[in-house]
Design a protein around this nucleic acid. Sequence first.
DNA 1: CGGCAGCGCTGCAACGTTGTAGATTCGTTC
DNA 2: GAACGAATCTACAACGTTGCAGCGCTGCCG
Lengths: 336, 336
Amino acid sequence: MAVTLYDVATLAGVSIKTVSNVVNDYAHIRPTTRAKVLAAIDELGYKPNISARSLRLGRTGVIGLAVPELSLSYFAELADAVIRAAERHNLVVLIEQTGGIREREIAMLSSSRLHFTDGLIFSPLGMGSDDAALLDVSYPLVLLGERIFGGPADHVTMRNVEAARAATTHLIGLGRRRIAAFGAHAGEVLGSAALRLQGYREALDEAGIPFDPDLVREAGQWHRLDGARAMHDLLDAGVPFDAVFGFNDTLALGAVRVLQEAGRSIPADVAVIGFDGLDETKYSLPTLSTVDPGRDELAETAVRVLVERIAERDGQLPPREYLSDFTLVERESTAL
Amino acid sequence: MAVTLYDVATLAGVSIKTVSNVVNDYAHIRPTTRAKVLAAIDELGYKPNISARSLRLGRTGVIGLAVPELSLSYFAELADAVIRAAERHNLVVLIEQTGGIREREIAMLSSSRLHFTDGLIFSPLGMGSDDAALLDVSYPLVLLGERIFGGPADHVTMRNVEAARAATTHLIGLGRRRIAAFGAHAGEVLGSAALRLQGYREALDEAGIPFDPDLVREAGQWHRLDGARAMHDLLDAGVPFDAVFGFNDTLALGAVRVLQEAGRSIPADVAVIGFDGLDETKYSLPTLSTVDPGRDELAETAVRVLVERIAERDGQLPPREYLSDFTLVERESTAL
DNA sequence: CGGCAGCGCTGCAACGTTGTAGATTCGTTC
DNA sequence: GAACGAATCTACAACGTTGCAGCGCTGCCG
């Protein structure tokens, strides 16, 4: 059925190894031979069998990407960026969803479903620092996110603290003093929520604004609904506020919806800023100010680091950490 | 480095074929032997080499999914659904992006990047009916979308005409008579745009409402920005209207934004309905009525059909077409 | 002019797996 | 107790590819 090197070799009147050499751009082949082989390849429509090549080389040209859920815009846009970056390295991407559930994430790490990929880019959500030991796997692994520091794997992440401080400082620059923060996770130390909260507090401290715990609202998940719920709670509690910092864009957009229902004007009554730089923030009403954590750079770095790890035969370099640059994007929701 | 059948066989004191049989749940193995082998597998941490298995079996357990762009919510949610469906069939999914560009779509079909997948689920956007012949490929292929009918491949699609008619009829049921339609593609005959326009016209005819070409607005792309632009045009043209049917949710949301800026109340002044059943429509302000074309069913069917095609050795059944059921989702944007 | 490097190509072995055919044991039946 | 079939296991040959060693030849160097 399928055309093999053997068929091409027969037609071209050479050995299969020569065909293989042509296919692999081996330098020392007479131009006439090369032409003959190429003609035969063309005539038969030969395509290399990747399984056989993988078996021989021990590499597949496939990398895995494990994210919580593609239907969350942030991860869809991240996957988009990772696929583009992988393409530049001639790799294809196999995507798995963990649902952000710790057990599924742990299972994924030793799953045979990903066993034939050359390496994995992993964006955990449910696993915590306690699970760091589980990341000591036998294949190249790059962590993308903020959940686990100091683990045994390379780690590509964003400047959460600095970016959150910049967002908060931006709100302070508008003259706001009662800034609500949405999306905190009680007890968390190293996750995005903790880091962004830290940035928020640093900005307040810097400006000499007292920290008010009533303004910090929990949200386990960071969906639109959670942002809406947090805003309802805040309004119901009667806590005065003149700005909101959503720990992600989706939370902020959920909050915006409730503010509008409640008749609060944005940004006149309440300035709002998000985090993630989602495409969507350009088109909401009002357009949403946000911090772009450098998603394309993150994806590009993650792929590059993974490729490097795959390339290094055994030289066990210690795990490294990479940080991307962020950009503050000012839009209508924080206009003066 | 990696553990092979041979290593396990040596440790367990059996032949590699017996280990293979244990791994593949072959029935006739003495329980004691099975236990010995399983113990050895466990001790060594054996994982089958998928490349070798693929080479031997001619199948990889990987299917391809080619979509325009993951950062478009519709395709992100579609990919999510396809991955879940594939998981139920023990398949993993390799995702490629075409950008919806005809040339890239055509290249994808014969690309060696997807050559080692068992089959492809393909959602074309740029290719047209003229390109149908290009779909006659040598591997299992399932088309997901509406661009190409009567081609040589299986085709899973939605009831575009009926669903669009239902959406329009719903608006008419609210007493609206001047219903704008956003997202038309001039000259198109078989694409989603043409079919949804047809459904729109059928609903008008049924209700005895005259068709007014001024109410039909073109939009090459179906992004938020295009919806916003179309609404600006409509308002500038001074054409009176009391409802909008967006050929997808994103167009409708873009239109909503401009309507709000223009001070038109939704749904009092203008009722709005979209198409696609995006998650996002639950959280917009106002929440957006939409038609869910049965995305999960589409994904499930596409995977099932692909699996069937992969399974059939040679029996070339003629290509078939599958339709999913749609659901009208009524929300605030069309409330009475 | 002997030696050596390089060209252009070939043949063989190996990557790790599973299908096939066959060997051996065991229990059952006549 | 011989014959037979089923259970249990093994040996061998693929699947299609690439690394390695090596073929005969040419050209260059000292």
